[in-house]
Design a protein around this nucleic acid. Structure first.
Length: 508
RNA sequence: GCAGCUGUAGCUCAGUUGGUUAGAGCACUAGAUUGUGGAUCUAGGGGUCCCCCGUUCGAGCCGGGGCAGCUGUACCA
């Protein structure tokens, strides 16, 4: 019964979601296995968690509404409790640790990989369902834990075949920015709203450049589409300090430029530390952040990662839960976008320290730090540089069903092939021979096995090489010639089926 | 959220100043083969021209409103 024409649903993929093709699944699995191997080697333990959590466990109720935040997919169960699809892997981990604290060895080191969901407008390369691969150390306040996560991220990139120098793990510290805001708002508390604007503005340096960031720090900015973004309304002197934090100094003729002093120290971790210490007003909190950054720099330097793990104040990351060091892993390879412009591939992962997340549940402070890889983004990057391993598994040999009464014979042939380690299937549809050939062709089958009444009487089977056949047929012009031959087809005794198939496959 | 662009067959798209029965390519089905895919040829199926209202003798085309999609921007744990 077909549905009434008017009530037929449209077959369409939900906006922001994706079907994943077989080659990509195979390539992804290989990539995930390599990441996992690195995390295992570092001694992290796997854990798997559900897609769904109670909404309040994710911390996403808006204060004045009983409806959860619309960035999150939420629904009510039979008991009218609000549930949400997880939007990252960190909030659920905090719940897990808070709930199982007594059982877990502290510091608890875990990794996990899975789908997360965001109910947002999708864009190019941005989906409403995507995969993350996280590793976290919960229960250690030591900068060693932060440094370790960064070095592990670097090792992961290399395990995936991204050469040294083609990626960088950038490190900054949220406390420095906090301290800087403290320092510039002496005598007048800067509102939370304006604080967020400063953070957002600094995060846009790569896209808008120093002048754009300065506009957002001060009076605001109008973009090409005419949309106006409100600024943080800092004074020039306050904004100047923020710009210096990012490594820019004001130049009378040219506005903000990369500072020469910084360049003179060759953009090293040591150079950045000195710059921040001497040229930026940091306040008490900022000094503490700088001290943490120094310790991380020392650790990665001593371990030989100083070139790969770099201090970079332009890293801001998410605004809400990070409390200290923040990281970002960026790929430096250049690529062309659809308009032919060369663009850097950009960020494929990030993370940081979130010391308050577990305390939400327990009231006890539990320091934690972690790193999250954007699996889909990283995968498209690997694909672009030819490091994705999508090689297709060979499609199965198809055994045609010409005589429906002889299915037992066909079944036996298929199982012999399988025992010999050859992917094989018996045609399970109901169509005739012609359609079965079409099926095998579309499927990409290398060979078909044919046994009708004639062959059976002689105790033989026909093996037809579809790929060779296609090659031979391309030279044929007339239909008569084409129809008169049995291209790339051999007849062998039943007993030699497996050997003949192996031989034909070996030719490919 | 804001701005711009676009909605015609399963897919990609033509469609003249508003004028009969709305087209192509691809895909699909059948035939040219007693039992042979991919080339070629023939035939066939498939349409609420996004929806509603209006203008008109007449709307895929013009006007208004809505909806959906795309792009940019804002937000993004």
């Amino acid at each position: 019964m077909t549905a009434d024409k008017n009530s037929r649903p449209k077959a369409r993929l939900a906006k922001g979601f994706r079907d994943v093709a077989p080659e990509e699944i195979r390539g992804l699995r290989r990539m995930l296995a390599k990441i996992e191997a690195v995390y295992e080697a570092y001694g992290f333990e796997p854990v798997e968690q559900p897609f769904v959590e109670y909404t309040d466990a994710l911390g996403k109720f808006l204060p004045d509404q009983d409806r959860p935040n619309d960035g999150v997919f939420s629904f009510q169960d039979d008991d009218e409790q609000w549930l949400s699809l997880r939007y990252d892997l960190t909030a659920p981990l905090a719940r897990y640790v808070a709930e199982n604290q007594q059982k877990l060895a502290t510091p608890y080191r875990s990794y996990r990989q899975g789908w997360v969901f965001r109910n947002e407008k999708p864009g190019p390369g941005r989906f409403r369902q995507f995969m993350q691969f996280d590793a976290d150390t919960v229960g250690s306040a030591s900068p060693a834990a932060d440094a370790e996560v960064c070095m592990m991220a670097a090792d992961t990139m290399e395990a995936l075949g991204i050469e040294r120098g083609k990626y960088v793990v950038k490190v900054s510290n949220r406390k420095i920015l906090d301290g800087l805001l403290e320092a510039i708002s002496i005598g007048q508390a800067i509102g939370q709203d304006r604080r967020l604007r400063v953070l957002r503005a600094t995060d846009k340096l790569d896209r808008l450049g120093p002048q754009g960031v300065f506009s957002l720090l001060t009076e605001g900015r109008k973009d090409e589409s005419g949309d106006f973004t409100e600024g943080a309304r800092l004074s020039d002197a306050q904004a100047d300090n923020v710009m210096r934090f990012l490594g820019f100094s004001r130049n009378v003729e040219r506005g903000y430029i990369k500072d020469n002093l910084l360049h003179a120290s060759a953009n090293t971790n040591q150079g950045w530390l000195e710059w921040l210490e001497n040229r930026v007003e940091l306040g008490v909190t900022g000094k503490a952040g700088l001290d943490e950054l120094k310790q991380i720099a020392n650790l990665v330097g001593a371990s030989g990662y100083g070139e790969r793990v770099r201090i970079d104040p332009t890293v801001v990351r998410g605004l809400e839960y990070y409390t200290g060091p923040v990281f970002e892993c960026e790929l430096l390879m250049e690529t062309k976008d659809e308009d032919g412009h060369t663009v850097r591939f950009g960020s494929v992962g990030g993370g940081g320290r979130y010391d308050d997340l577990v305390a939400r549940f327990t009231g006890q402070p539990v320091p934690a730090t972690g790193f999250s890889i954007g699996v889909s983004r990283l995968y498209s990057a690997l694909k672009l540089v030819g490091k994705a391993e999508e090689r297709a598994t060979l499609a199965p040999v198809v055994v045609l069903v010409l005589d429906k009464g002889a299915q037992g014979d066909y079944w036996r042939m298929v199982s012999e092939l399988r025992k010999a380690g050859i992917r094989a299937e018996m045609y399970v549809g109901t169509a005739g021979m012609k359609a079965q050939m079409k099926y095998a062709d579309k499927r990409g089958a290398p060979l078909v096995v044919i046994q009708g009444g004639d062959e059976k009487a002689k105790g033989e089977v026909q093996i037809k090489d579809l790929r060779l056949g296609a090659e031979l047929a391309s030279g044929i012009a007339s239909r008569e010639e084409y129809a008169s031959q049995r291209l790339a087809q051999v007849s062998v005794p039943e007993a030699e089926l497996v050997a003949a198939v192996k031989k034909a496959l070996a030719r490919e």
